[in-house]
Simulated scan of single mutants.
Amino acid sequence: MSRRYGGSPAGTVISVIADIAALILILWIALYLFDANTANNSVDWVHNAADWLSGWSHNLFTIHSADWRTVVNYGLPALVYLFIGHAVATGVNRS
């Protein structure tokens, strides 16, 4: 794993956490767009985790289309986690 991420162990942990957070958010977008069964425990867990991770960005923009609202409300935090997480990891790796 350290070859993929490189750098210090702390930087690697930060990058992995950012990647997992973004993956959960992107997974929820895909599950929503493909009309996954929300009664399924796995789908419900992903939805709850994505809600928690994206709580700060919900309804940031008023979009009438439910599909686009989901993409923006969950996609924006995924990008922020990736950008900030990897920027912090790069800073940790340089020090």
Results as ranks from 00 to 15, higher is better:
36 A>Y: 03
42 S>I: 13
36 A>K: 02
12 T>Q: 09
27 L>C: 11
29 I>M: 07
42 S>C: 10
3 R>Y: 07
47 H>K: 15
81 Y>Q: 04
27 L>Y: 03
62 T>A: 10
71 V>T: 01
21 A>L: 03
31 L>R: 01
75 G>A: 07
80 V>M: 02
71 V>G: 00
57 S>R: 06
53 L>P: 06
89 A>S: 12
25 L>D: 06
47 H>F: 13
93 N>F: 00
46 V>S: 05
42 S>F: 14
70 T>F: 04
18 A>D: 01
45 W>D: 03
34 F>S: 14
3 R>H: 10
67 D>N: 14
80 V>S: 06
80 V>P: 06
41 N>E: 09
31 L>C: 08
52 W>R: 09
86 H>Y: 12
56 W>K: 12
43 V>I: 14
8 S>F: 05
91 G>P: 02
17 I>N: 04
69 R>M: 08
65 S>D: 14
95 S>T: 14
92 V>E: 02
27 L>G: 04
12 T>E: 14
61 F>E: 06
26 I>M: 11
44 D>S: 15
10 A>D: 05
37 N>D: 15
85 G>A: 06
33 L>I: 14
72 V>K: 00
87 A>M: 11
23 L>E: 07
24 I>F: 03
32 Y>W: 08
14 I>H: 00
44 D>I: 12
21 A>W: 01
54 S>R: 07
45 W>M: 15
41 N>V: 14
81 Y>M: 01
68 W>E: 04
5 Y>T: 05
24 I>T: 12
26 I>Q: 01
48 N>T: 12
19 D>S: 13
92 V>D: 02
42 S>M: 06
28 W>D: 01
36 A>C: 06
34 F>W: 09
40 N>W: 02
82 L>D: 05
89 A>E: 09
29 I>L: 12
64 H>F: 07
94 R>P: 00
67 D>K: 09
88 V>R: 03
61 F>G: 06
62 T>W: 05
3 R>N: 09
72 V>D: 00
17 I>M: 15
92 V>H: 08
45 W>R: 07
10 A>V: 07
54 S>V: 06
14 I>E: 04
72 V>S: 01
77 P>Q: 03
38 T>I: 13
35 D>C: 00
10 A>R: 10
59 N>I: 00
35 D>Q: 12
52 W>Y: 10
62 T>F: 01
14 I>S: 12
21 A>D: 02
90 T>M: 07
55 G>M: 01
38 T>W: 07
33 L>Y: 10
34 F>L: 10
21 A>G: 14
13 V>I: 13
70 T>K: 08
28 W>F: 13
79 L>N: 02
20 I>N: 04
15 S>I: 05
13 V>G: 12
78 A>T: 04
18 A>P: 03
50 A>M: 13
78 A>M: 07
82 L>N: 05
47 H>A: 15
73 N>D: 15
54 S>Q: 11
22 A>L: 11
91 G>D: 08
82 L>I: 12
48 N>R: 15
87 A>E: 05
36 A>L: 01
1 M>D: 11
41 N>L: 14
60 L>I: 02
49 A>D: 13
9 P>C: 09
90 T>G: 11
83 F>P: 00
45 W>Q: 07
71 V>I: 11
48 N>L: 14
17 I>F: 12
60 L>D: 02
61 F>M: 03
37 N>H: 12
88 V>H: 03
45 W>I: 13
74 Y>K: 02
16 V>P: 10
